[in-house]
């Protein structure tokens, strides 16, 4: 009874999350939905006498793989969301037909199949318990496949490094060269910090120089742009002017 309740709850959640993953425009949400499905599945594994797999599911999938996904999403750009316009003619229609048809066939097949009562893993794990039995299989019967997976993982790691590696095309700029360029440039000193002479200590408030004029370069260009875009400009027209100016500089 407990299992049935667990199943129905988790089944509804996981199917909902899966649908959400497919239909959500934002990739980050999709990733989170997938994580939800994976966690649900982990619980279902545990319910189905597979605690080891449940642990691995959480550690490897939810922990490692999903983090990797999110990490790459950060690299590629979190903001980007898919356009909803389908470019391939008939793709959605046929995808729906094929996918639903496939699902219907599976349901039909499984629904028609008559299963005997579940054998359960009690007999299989009688000797030495569950973890021992798994280990026994993994390191005897499947030891060869197991070792090959290690080769596979090393190859994958190497491949990822090779693919992601970028060859440096120009010489690395040394600290000496950087320092020389700085002293030969317009401003040898560091940029003024923001808000130093401001009425409120915020990083989007430009500093005021001793003569009361505004130090535009004290505000980070990106922050200035953010402020302009969100309309968060200060009331003081002089400061607002400086931030706008700074933002225009950025957009150049």
């Amino acid at each position: 009874m407990g299992e049935t309740i667990t199943f129905w709850v988790l089944a509804v959640i996981s199917v909902g999350a899966a649908l959400g993953m497919v239909f959500n425009r934002k990739a980050v949400y999709s990733a989170l939905m997938l994580g939800t499905v994976m966690l649900c599945l982990a619980v279902l594994y545990a319910v189905q006498e597979a605690p080891f797999l449940a642990a691995v599911q959480i550690i490897v999938y939810t922990g490692a793989v999903m983090m990797l996904f999110l990490f790459v999403l950060m690299l590629v750009g979190v903001d980007s969301s898919d356009s909803l316009v389908e470019t391939l003619r008939g793709q959605r229609f046929w995808a729906a037909i094929a996918g639903l048809g496939f699902a219907a066939l599976i349901v039909l097949a499984v629904g028609n199949a008559v299963f005997s009562t579940q054998a359960g893993l009690a007999a299989a794990t009688a000797q030495g318990g569950y973890i021992r039995s798994i280990a026994l299989l993994l390191f005897t019967k499947y030891v060869f496949a197991f070792e090959i997976t290690s080769a596979l993982l090393i190859t994958a790691a190497l491949g990822a490094m090779v693919l992601a590696h970028r060859e440096r095309e120009e010489k690395k700029v040394t600290q000496k060269e950087q320092s020389r360029a700085r002293f030969l440039g317009d401003r040898p000193s560091p940029l003024p910090g923001p808000g130093t002479y401001a009425r409120n200590n915020a990083i989007d408030m430009p500093a005021l120089l001793p003569d009361g004029s505004v130090a535009e370069s004290s505000v980070n260009r990106y922050i200035a742009r953010y402020d302009v875009e969100r309309g968060l400009l200060p009331e003081d027209p002089k400061l607002a002017e400086a931030i706008k100016h700074r933002a225009e500089e950025e957009s150049k």
Binding site: L88, W94, A98, G99, G101, F102, L105, A109
Partner: peptide
């Protein structure tokens, strides 16, 4: 690639249907 994937899925569905 998506068109190819579609044909693969249709093929899989057809094979499943045939088996049924």
């Amino acid at each position: 690639a998506r068109t190819y994937a579609l044909s693969i899925l249709i093929g899989a569905a057809l094979v499943t249907g045939a088996l049924l």
